[in-house]
């Protein structure tokens, strides 16, 4: 039973969550019409053996999407943050890069 530190609700068992997959793939902008960008986003995965950033949805709690660091080999749990915050930080870094 994996236990996830929900930033809103505290430590909760995995059975309250559903898994949402790789959180490192970034959705292209709505206006992006390049099929390859969408193929990459929808289908292609790094699938790391070790630490992984991934979405979990606290469906039986606060219904927030969470980005969790979790080790796919040892099942160790690392940091968790709201996906909303992760997305904001992401857009800030990409703006800075531009």
């Amino acid at each position: 039973m994996i236990r996830i530190e929900c930033p809103v609700c505290g430590q909760r068992p995995e059975t309250e969550f559903t898994y949402g997959g790789d959180a490192t793939v970034r959705r292209p902008e709505m206006t992006n019409e390049d099929p390859q960008a969408w193929i990459e986003y929808v289908f292609m995965r790094g699938n790391p053996r070790g630490w992984h950033r991934e979405y979990w949805h606290h469906v039986q709690g606060c219904r927030q999407w969470i980005v969790l660091e979790r080790n796919t080999l040892s099942h160790e749990i690392g940091q968790a943050e709201l996906a909303r915050d992760a997305a904001r930080a992401w857009s800030r870094t990409s703006e800075a890069a531009e």
Binding site: T18, G20, R26, H57, V59, Q64, W65, A83, R84, A87
Partner: peptide
């Protein structure tokens, strides 16, 4: 119902925040 809601929440909390 559950699938649609979960997708809406994901979008609104990430790409469409």
């Amino acid at each position: 119902a559950a699938k649609v809601l979960a997708m809406a929440e994901l979008m609104l909390q990430t790409a469409w925040a």
